[in-house]
Design a binder for these strands. Sequence first.
DNA 1: TTGTAGGCGTTATCAC
DNA 2: GTGATAACGCCTACAA
Lengths: 339, 339
Amino acid sequence: MPDQAVTLKDVARLAGVHPATASRALNPETRPLVNEETSRRVLTAAAELGYRPNAVARSLRTRRTHTVGVLIPDLNNPLFPPIVRGLEDRLDAAGYVALIGNTDGDSTREQRIIEQMRARNVDGFVLATAHLRNPQLGHTAEAGLPVVFMNRIAEDYSFPSVTVDNERGARMAVSHLVALGHERIGYIAGPQDVSTGLTRYRGFQAAMDAAGQEVRGDLVTFASSFSIGEGYRCAQQILSAGGCTAIAAGNDMLAVGCYEALDDAGLSCPRDISVVGFNNMPFIDMLRPPLTTVAFPHYEVGTQAAQLLIEQLNGDEGPVKALFLAPELITRRSTAQVS
Amino acid sequence: MPDQAVTLKDVARLAGVHPATASRALNPETRPLVNEETSRRVLTAAAELGYRPNAVARSLRTRRTHTVGVLIPDLNNPLFPPIVRGLEDRLDAAGYVALIGNTDGDSTREQRIIEQMRARNVDGFVLATAHLRNPQLGHTAEAGLPVVFMNRIAEDYSFPSVTVDNERGARMAVSHLVALGHERIGYIAGPQDVSTGLTRYRGFQAAMDAAGQEVRGDLVTFASSFSIGEGYRCAQQILSAGGCTAIAAGNDMLAVGCYEALDDAGLSCPRDISVVGFNNMPFIDMLRPPLTTVAFPHYEVGTQAAQLLIEQLNGDEGPVKALFLAPELITRRSTAQVS
DNA sequence: TTGTAGGCGTTATCAC
DNA sequence: GTGATAACGCCTACAA
C-alpha cells in the first residue's frame, strides 16, 4: 500500500538530503561522488520506503529504455522458443528486456512492427527475419539503432550476425546420404530469398559435386516457405519424378511435410526413401522414424545475438562480428543404407 | 536522418500553433476540441516532418506504458507459443505490448521478474503460473494492478481468468477409455498444487466413479512436474504395478514420457496399453502413434485473457469473469478397444 | 561533497 | 478554440 507514490524526493526528504544527492547515492555509477555516510543514509531511507526508481522517468532523461525489439517469423515455429529464451536470458542479465514481434513472413507487417517498436524507443533490434535484399532495413540502420541478425543474414556482412554454418551443415547432410550409398538424391530447397534457404542449397550442390554426382533437375524443388505444407507439396513433386532413394530437406519443417507425403504414397522411411532435415528442432526426435538432421545450439544463437547487441549498446568499437556456430549431424533412424 | 529529433514542438512551430494545440490535434481523443482547419494544418506538418510521438514522455505524463507483463512457466513448452501469440495479437490490436517472463516454475525467480516488470511500470499482468496458494500474488494485487489468470487459476475466483474446463476434459478422456472396454485404468496426475493438475485428477476420479470402477491406488502416480521425465518415471511405476490396460496422463508431456516408458518396456501402444493425454499441444499428432488427447483452443486462451485484461485496463466495471473454454476429445491412434 | 536549476517530450489545467 | 504554464520523476552540468 505505501507504494507506487514513493519517489526520489520522498527518499531524499527522509534521508535529509537534496534529491540530487539521493539520485547520486542510489546510482552505483555516481555513488563514489557522495559521502559514504550520507549515501548509507540514503540507501537506508530508500529501503525503508520501498523505493523503486521510475524507469519511465529515467528513460526520458537518459534516452535509453533498456528495451530491445526482436523480430521473428513466428513463435509457433518450434525452432524459435529456445532461441528466444537464450536471447531473453542474456538480455535480462544485462538489464534489458525484449519486445517480441511475429512477422509471419509479411514485410508490411514487419514494417509496422518496426515502426511501433521505434515509437517505443527500443534501444536496438535483433532480427531473425532478414531477407537477402532487405529494403526496410535501410531505414532502421539509418536511424542509428544497433541491429543484429540472427539465424538468417542479409546479403553482406555489414551487420553483426549469429548464424549456423549452413553450407557446411548441408554438405554434412548430403555427404551422409552419399556415404550410405545413395546415388539419386532429391532436394527440397527452402526459399531462395533468405540466406538459410540459399546457402543450404549451395551446400547441397557442393556436396553433390564433391561426390561426383549429377544434380537431377527434376529431383530438386523449391519451397516457397519453410512449412510442412510446402514440404508436402515439394516431396510429392519429387516422388512423381521417380527414381530417387533419398531426400534432403532445407529444414525440419519441410522434412515433416516429406514424411506426410511418403505416408500418403504408401512409402516407408527409411526402407524406401531416406530423409534428412536441418535444425534438429525440439521434439523432432519424437517422430517416427526419428529424423536424421543437422543440429546446432539454438539457445546459444540467442545468447550470442544478445551479446553482440549488448556490445554495440555499450559502445564497444571494433570490426563487425559474424559468428558462425558449428553444425553437427545427428544420425537417427530416417536414413539408411540404400537397399 | 531527419529523424529522432523531431518533437511536438517542431510540429507546432511548422504549423504555427502552440505545442499544446498540436498535442490536442494529434490525439484523436482530444481532436474535437480543436478547430478543424487548425488540426489539419497540424496533421500535415506532422506528416511532413515524419513526427512520431515519444512514448516514454507520454507515459511519464499519463502514467500508462501500454505494456503488460506476461508470466509463463517456460516458452519451450509447446503449449505456450500459440497462447502467447493469441495474447500478443489481441494486445497489439489494443495498442499494448507484452513483456514475456519465464519462471521455470521457480517462485523466487517469478518474484524477481514481477519486481522488474513493476519497475518498468507495466499496466497489468497476465499470469499462466498460478499456484493454488500463491503468496506473492498478494503484493501484486495489493499494488492495484489488474491481474488476469490464464490456463491455471488460484484457489478461488477472485481474479478474472481463462481456463479450460479441466474436470470435464479429464472425464471425457477417461470415459473414452471406459467406453473402449478398459477396466484397469492407470492415471499419471500432474502436480497437485496447481489447478490443472488437481482438477484433472478430480475429473479422473469422477469419471471412474461414474463408471462404477474402482481407482486402484497402485495405478495412480503423481508427477512432480508436467515433464517428459516425470511422465517416464510415473509410467514405469504404474507398469511395474502390473495389470493395467490403459493410462491417462495429466497432460501431453506426461503422455510423451509414457510413450518412452512403454518403448523401453517393450510394450506397444495401443496394442498392449492405450494412452490418452491432455492439451493437444502442437506436433503431438506427429508422434507414433498419434496421441488421443483433450484439445482446447490455445490461441483463444491468449486472446480471451488479453481481452479480460484490456477490459480492466479500460476501467470497465462489473463482476469478475471466469471463462471456461470447452474441451474436446480428439481420438487418434493411441487408444484402442481393450484386447 | 552537496545544492541549484534546467530540461527530457508530453499532456492536463488553467485562463483568455 | 487556443495559449500559457506546470508537472510527470529523474539526471546532470554547474555553482557553491
